[in-house]
Design a protein around this nucleic acid. Structure first.
Length: 214
DNA sequence: CGCACGATGCTCT
DNA sequence: GAGCATCGTGCGC
């Protein structure tokens, strides 16, 4: 199976790309191993959209958004988390698709390890079942590994230093065509924003358990 | 289950 | 100095 090509990222407007990316698989081939997951939730950010980081002008932070379609845009949020976007649209126009949730398919143990690093371990260390088996930390159960934009960045080992501004066509981060034959899609307003809060730019796979929230 | 809240640091005003 | 495309925890039900 070949990864998505430049043509795929170029030929759709941002709202359509956000929908077409559902069902596709995000893969990171890192020195520590491969992690992958099916994209099940996205949000679109358009250039004339007040919630978009590129709404005002090009700055050092949002510069990657103005790159060609298929560029990766990673930014830090709330001082401690990171989110990843797929740049879309014409080069020079700041638009992108935020990846909000993945259904993990490969490298689950590596994902757990990355997510555990820096997270409270109280439950997994101190709590044990009656048979002595340690209780898995709730935040690290498969269902919660990638069900949020900052969670999946951490689980996948995506970093701002290595990936911001990189290309999905040539780097160690790639996207493969949809593995979901037919699925229903839900369209809603976006999560966690105040500006442009009423725009229906969020999309997710109906009924999927790995979506951040319904 | 749901809701409230604090952490934490960078970017832009 | 304000605001932020979030997350995990703790508490109440």
């Amino acid at each position: 199976m070949q990864p998505l090509t430049l043509d795929f990222y170029q030929k759709y407007d941002t709202l359509t790309l956000a929908q077409r990316l559902l069902g596709c698989t995000l893969v990171h081939q890192s020195p520590y191993g491969i992690t992958a997951g099916i994209i099940v939730e996205t949000e679109a950010y358009l250039t004339d959209d007040p919630a978009c980081h590129a709404y005002r002008k090009k700055t050092k932070r949002n510069a990657a958004m103005f790159g060609p379609a298929g560029t990766v845009y990673v930014y830090q949020i709330y001082g401690m988390h990171y989110c990843v976007n797929i740049v879309s649209g014409e080069e020079g126009v700041g638009e992108a698709v935020l990846i909000r949730a993945l259904e993990p398919t490969e490298g689950i143990e590596l994902m757990e390890e990355r997510r555990r690093n820096g997270v409270s371990r109280v439950s997994s260390v101190e709590c044990r079942m009656s048979n002595g088996e340690p209780v898995r930390h709730s935040a690290l159960s498969p269902r919660h590994l990638c069900n949020g934009p900052a969670k999946l960045v951490k689980a996948m080992g995506i970093s701002i230093e290595e990936h911001n501004g990189s290309s999905l066509l040539t780097g160690n981060l790639k996207i493969y065509p949809s593995v979901l034959k037919e699925f229903e899609m839900v369209t809603t307003t976006r999560i966690g924003i105040t500006q442009g809060a009423d725009l229906p730019y969020r999309f997710y796979v109906t009924g999927n358990r790995f979506v951040s929230r319904k």
